[in-house]
């Protein structure tokens, strides 16, 4: 057994668990958080996504000993953020949303894609490097960072639930990104 100390949804926790117990099981069995899938027995279903140190990560692949002094944000807590409200707004606007089975996972994957495109843009330094990250290379540096349909398809492979098609996923990602830029959601 290992004595863990980590932050879950902004609350500092201390817990005694087995070293190799997956985070998804800890959340369900030890902390009674059941909004996400408990355990898919290694099928990488994608339904146990959490934000692990702000990075979207599959809970079933994180053993307990890796949690020491880390920050975990579950979907319940993510729902209180401006980033969630941005994605939620687009779901309503387009009248498309994931089914209840994969709602949490797909929403967190959108968050991952939007965060990644933001990081990409801020990492680039020169105008030339910067322009490579945009759809239209001729536009100025204030254009939005590129989100490719190919990236969307690849990233959503992790959540194979067929409730939304590639076109819908792509549309939501693009609109959410535009909305974030417009409303300055950082």
């Amino acid at each position: 057994m290992i004595k863990l100390s980590f932050t879950l949804n902004k609350n500092r926790l201390e817990l005694m668990v087995s070293e190799m117990k997956p985070l998804s099981q800890i959340l369900y069995e030890d902390l009674q958080i059941d909004t996400q899938e408990r355990n898919c027995n290694g099928k990488v279903c994608g339904n146990c996504l959490v934000l692990f140190d702000k990075e979207p990560t599959l809970g079933c692949l994180i053993p307990a000993f890796k949690l020491q002094n880390k920050t975990v944000t579950t979907f319940d807590s993510f729902m209180q953020t401006a980033h969630y409200r941005n994605i939620r707004r687009i779901y309503t606007q387009l009248n498309i949303e994931p089914c209840p089975n994969c709602y949490a996972a797909k929403t967190l994957i959108f968050e991952s894609i939007l965060l990644k495109s933001k990081t990409k843009a801020s990492q680039t330094s020169t105008l030339d490097d910067f322009s490579k990250n945009f759809v239209n290379k001729g536009k100025n540096i204030f254009d939005k960072p590129e989100i490719l349909a190919e990236t969307i398809e690849r990233e959503f492979l992790i959540s194979p639930c067929p409730c939304m098609n590639s076109q819908e996923l792509f549309e939501i990602a693009i609109k959410a990104q535009e909305d974030r830029i417009k409303r300055r959601v950082l």
Binding site: V44, T57, L58, S112, K116, L157, I158
Partner: peptide, 12 residues
């Protein structure tokens, strides 16, 4: 590397 897995799994 791109095809190894999705971005989320490639992080690990």
């Amino acid at each position: 590397l791109h095809n190894t897995a999705t971005h989320i799994i490639r992080n690990q």
